[in-house]
């Protein structure tokens, strides 16, 4: 009995994965440990397991996505779940159906887990209040993208063996980035020091209160950094003027081999994708397998999502 109690204490206390903010350090570490076990499986010729056999996973995407959606799709299938993907962006919403209506409809089909991406911050939280199954946030508005941060952490651990004590820079359009927010929470939680770098107009209000140092100068911000995370300039979310031009942005904030020299000698580059080559990152640098972890991020993304599905699927 005592042993059982102990494991249940480590077991996730929340039913849903809504954000890193709601996660305890034990829960985060558990997901990362679990994910590690799937890395080699995903590289082996026989990738299929039956852990989630008989379970139904619904991917509910209100916003277009290629890599996150396919990653969750594959993760569910490799665990043996029945996966259904719905791109709601262009059907129900246009007919006036609300998120709540969609939730109730899906709930009636008895899914075991719903993976949701939505353009509005907090939409997964609302959904989780109305359905009987677990909800995984696959990105909501400008708030959180927890599985992206977890896969970034796994990628770093895979290369650097640890996160504690590392210095991590997150650069670019912090204002519109849920990836930045989730990474700030997670990297802080795992013991890294986090710098955010970007033009003032793309820096969220009171960002320092999240436990980071903010810089507008790449040279200062990248100093002694072990990891450089570049973010995409989210033009589709920008209404009005934030920057004079892409050319000017690239000049001051685009990651080039010269600017990378400000960071540690063995610094590695990450990017959540999709990349705007020549806007936030030099195209050769992005493809340089010696410094760029971009492909590894995508690969380990599947492992992290498998771990999340396994843990949160009842």
């Amino acid at each position: 009995m005592a042993v059982q109690k102990k494991t249940s204490a480590i077991k996730s206390t929340t039913k849903h994965l809504l954000g890193i903010q709601n996660l305890s350090i034990l829960e985060a570490k558990k997901i990362l440990e679990e994910a590690k076990t799937f890395i080699s499986l995903n590289r082996s010729p026989s990738k299929k397991l039956d852990i989630l056999r008989g379970k139904t996973q619904i991917n509910l995407f209100f916003e277009p996505s290629t890599r996150t959606q396919s990653s969750f799709d594959l993760a569910g299938k490799r665990l043996g779940a029945d996966v259904m993907t719905m791109n709601v962006g262009n059907s129900a919403l246009k007919k006036g159906e609300t998120l709540m209506d969609t939730a109730m409809t899906l709930n009636a089909m008895h899914p075991d887990i719903i993976v949701i991406r939505h353009q509005d911050s907090g939409a997964p939280n609302l959904l989780s209040q109305k359905v009987n199954c677990a909800v995984i946030n696959a990105g909501d508005g400008q708030r959180e993208h927890p599985t992206q941060a977890l896969l970034d952490a796994l990628t770093i651990i895979n290369r650097k063996e640890k996160i504690e004590g590392l210095k991590i820079a997150i650069c670019g359009d912090i204002l519109h980035s849920r990836v930045a927010r989730s990474n700030i929470y997670l990297m802080n939680m795992l013991g890294a020091e986090v710098n955010v770098i970007g033009p003032k107009t793309l820096m969220p209000s009171s960002i320092e209160r999240l436990g980071v140092k903010s810089f507008t100068d790449m040279k200062k911000g990248l100093d002694k950094c072990d990891i450089v995370m570049m973010l995409r300039l989210q033009n589709e979310r920008m209404q009005g003027t934030f920057l004079p031009s892409k050319r000017e942005y690239y000049e001051f904030f685009g990651l080039t081999p010269e600017k990378l020299k400000f960071a540690s000698k063995d610094a590695l580059i990450m990017h959540p994708g999709p990349m705007n080559r020549g806007v936030e990152i030099d195209t050769k640098l992005a493809d340089d397998i010696n410094v760029s972890l971009v492909k590894e991020q995508v690969e380990l993304g599947v492992a992290v999502r498998m771990a999340c599905l396994k843990i949160y699927c009842k």
């Binding site: 911050s121 400008q142 708030r143 927010r181 969220p204 209000s205 009171s206 999240l210 209404q239």
Partner: peptide
């Protein structure tokens, strides 16, 4: 309106954490 558009709560730490547009 130009300053408050897309905003729905006070601009500050809470709007940054919740990922909501802020009204300064």
């Amino acid at each position: 309106y130009e300053l408050s558009k897309n905003g729905c709560i006070n601009e500050g730490e809470v709007s940054t954490r919740l990922g909501l547009g802020g009204i300064s």
